[in-house]
Amino acid sequence: MENKTIDPKQIKGWGIDADPKNDPTYPMRDRMNVGEDPDNKHRPTQQPTHQVEKLRSIERPNISAVYGTTVPPQGLSGMIRRLAFKYSENRYRHWLPLIVADRVSVVEGILDDLVHGHVPNIYAEKGYPVEWKHNRTAFIAKMATIGLVTAGVIAILSSGKSEKKSKKKDYLSRY
């Protein structure tokens, strides 16, 4: 592993696209003001609307001429997404609920799998077999850490519970 110096001119294609006049370059080079563009209101053919429920950014007046139809909002996550879209892309009130909805939809996804009689193979979905194959030591260490931390958290939580209980007892016994 060593860095060798190279004469750039020996590299195939060196300077082939050099152009001192290309500055400012893309994306400003062909900049066009909206006012200069007589066609700025032009729109392609509209995909029929209402093919699915489509949430729309309130920073635009319409549904885009073409749109994606996959996974329309549904369930609790869908309700959260609908609320999020009441706010513009400028607001945390838009983005944070969407992240929450994403996490809720993970739980909904597991429930949906179970309802359809499918127990998700999370070990395989996470690609752990390939970690096991190529990264075994680190993988075992990681799993052990997760195991220890989980056990620790459970221990702390349950000990906290019994402490509270015993305090309550003491408190009562004083009277």
């Binding site: 994306p27 563009d37 066609d39 950014s57």
Partner: peptide, 20 residues
Amino acid sequence: CHFCRQGMFGNCHESNTEAT
């Protein structure tokens, strides 16, 4: 659209309803 006609094909205004 206005953006595609400037060569900004990564910034089309007529294909994404959810985010401008």
